[in-house]
Nucleic acid binder design. Sequence first.
RNA 1: AGCGAGGUAGGGUAGACUGGAGUGCCCGCCGGGCUCAUAACCCGGAGAUCGGUGGUUCAAAUCCACCUCUCGCUACCA
Length: 483
Amino acid sequence: MPKFYVTTPIFYLNAKPHIGHAYSVTIADVLARWHRLKGDDTFFLTGTDEHGEKVEKKAAELGISPQEHVDRLSAEWKEAWKKLNISNDDFIRTTELRHEKAVKHFVKLMHDNGDIYEGVYEGWYCTSDETFIPESQLADGKCPECGKEVRKLKEETYYFRLSRYQEHLLEYYKQNPNFILPKKRAAEIINRVNDGLKDLSMTRPSVRWGIPFQFNDKHTIYVWVDALVNYLSAQGWPDKEPKYWPADVQIVGKDIVWFHTVIWPAMLISAGFKPPKSVLVTGHFISEGKKMSKSIGNVADPTELVNKYSADSLRYFLMRELPLGDDGDFSEKLLAERNNNELAADLGNLVFRVLTLSSKFEGKLEGKPALESSMDLKAFQEAMDRYDTYKALEIIWRFIKAANKYINDTKPWELQGSELANALYNSIEAIRVIAILISPFMPAAADSINKQLGIPSGRFEDCKFSRIDYIPKKGAPLFKKIE
RNA sequence: AGCGAGGUAGGGUAGACUGGAGUGCCCGCCGGGCUCAUAACCCGGAGAUCGGUGGUUCAAAUCCACCUCUCGCUACCA
């Protein structure tokens, strides 16, 4: 049985989930459900990244322990994904013992391989925010956060010999042209790696809320090194072999591509693992032409949207709105439009009218497949296997439109006897197949269709028109229009 | 500044690698059809000098050069 392992980034606990996070977990969820539908042995991981200075400081502000703080926040994220109907197989938290154990072992392997050495890190430091600022982030030579002066500061640190892996990485990119997806993202990384790699400062003497560095207990391990190992620690490693590694696809936002396509693979090679098979870089949502940010107040809260519309509506919108890897506009108006036109009118109404027609029918539902050829299953499968949910939905919608047209053309309400049976047979088989195809995207709607048809959930191989031996019972409309 | 990706009807996209009538899709707009259905569904139509200029070619959205505009990335903020 083929294996499939998909991951999202683990989310840093310095804010609530926003629409971009929802996008990442939804695409991972759709892929996981798709592979389960095909019968693959699937593992889907998400979680939260809980160490670091920002978390420590926020907890102090709130007057609670960092652990208490992350316990609360992590629960919020879990709840948000539950509302979105996310089917993750595990939820990893970097403050869990299993993770700490894995990180320490991972660092030991890197160390044993001669890739960790002691040194000094020198950078621009903002005293007010108590943090180093990368040179490129400086705003007119001042701190971009608080606007105050920064000064050069030296700090003891341990380095990871990242520079040693430049050739390995370039070779890996060459051998695996689908490592960075979509491909247009690959060039900018490869060119930068070509220009040379600097070693990575991987411990912090000043941060206390982190995993202790076992070779010098005054240091904690840099949060990124800590965080990246989650993809292995959730597999039960090092107590057992990581069954699903290497991951088939790791979903990342474009802001963290470097960590997942350069640092992470280098760490893995150093510790004796294979890099992931591919890293899928997603675009960002912008809001009416502007970046979403808390200061503008245009941040969309996925939980609120789920409450107002439905998990399915939001999931559909997210998968349909952004062409793979591109940025897209988010606005509630667009969400409402898609909900009303494509879900309520095209799909919901199709199911509703078919159920109305067939509920009145009393004979045997049989006929010859006439509509099947309008569904291009091969193209659908190809799109899904390239992670192109946008295209896949377009193909499903072509079929939905064909089904609506079939009903208009055959006019079942004017037919009788075997002609009527045949028209209904094709209509019902169409929505049965549609339920299977939309199930990775809109699991609740798929369940509702199956329930109305009185059948269990189908598998991908059931997408063929066959005999009908069940009695449909009409239920409530799948989607409601909003406003 | 360097590197990268783009500019195709009112908006959003596909097509570009392997040149061949501006060909497709979604939304919006206009007109018609239908009445099973959530004023839903189906059909038809208007609307584009394919960012600009020049070149290669029998033929360019597609290949080449230059120009212009937009956007992204530039590593230790997790």
